[in-house]
Computed example of a mutant assay.
Amino acid sequence: MLGFALYFAFFRNAPNAPAPEKAPVEKPAKAKRPKEKGPARYLTVFEGKVIGIKDGDTFEILYDSIPERVRLAEIDCPEKSQAFGKNAKQFASDLCFGKTVTVASDGKRDRYGRIVGTITTKDGINVNEKLVKAGLAWHYKQYSKSKELAELENRAREKKIGLWADTNPEAPWEWRKGRRHR
């Protein structure tokens, strides 16, 4: 007890000895936070790098350091959980993932905020047309009057290429409608 009393009496308020100097510790750089989503940009023709393929007809393209989602115009690929959905996604990925592409759009966005447009690779490959030609997308006639896409789909059907090899392929818009009603 006497030791405690002496400690508190003499050392409790005594000035502390200066702490030895420590070498400054460098903090690791913090990862940059993504930019806040502001109002949607009005984009018609732009060039960017494909950084993601969500499914056969939805791409993520880095433009001006901001990712933009692009929905391919005039076509509709099978959904990922539909027959040939994974094939369409892989085909699209093989065509242009990690590459710089040009997106041409009328500036409109769909109800999910995606730019609706046509993607062309540096090699001049029209991705929208290539998917239809490979039998991995339907010509979306509800939103397109393109005679070229209609002809590409007809040729793929006749040759039973891709999804047209199935005896009764289900259009993605019909498949989605069926899922909504469940």
Score class of each variant (00 low, 15 high):
W173L: 01
P34E: 10
P78T: 04
A23M: 10
D94V: 04
P67Y: 07
Y143V: 06
K54M: 13
A14R: 02
I53C: 05
F59E: 06
P78S: 06
A165W: 07
V103E: 01
E158Q: 15
S81T: 09
E68H: 15
K145T: 14
K86S: 07
V70A: 08
G117A: 04
D64G: 01
E151S: 14
R71Q: 06
A5Q: 03
I53D: 09
L6A: 09
Y7L: 12
R182S: 13
E36Q: 12
F84T: 05
K30C: 03
L6H: 02
K99G: 03
R41I: 07
I53R: 09
G178L: 13
V132P: 07
F97N: 05
F84D: 07
S81A: 06
N126I: 02
K177M: 08
G3Y: 04
H139V: 06
P78K: 05
A23H: 05
R111M: 02
L136N: 10
V127Q: 01
K177W: 07
P169G: 10
L62R: 09
T102H: 03
Q142D: 13
W173V: 03
L72K: 02
P78N: 06
I53M: 12
C96V: 10
P28N: 05
K80I: 14
S144K: 13
R71P: 02
G117K: 00
L149G: 11
P20L: 13
E79W: 07
W175G: 02
G56A: 07
T100W: 02
K141F: 11
I115M: 10
G107E: 01
Q142F: 12
P39D: 08
K130G: 01
A134L: 05
R71A: 04
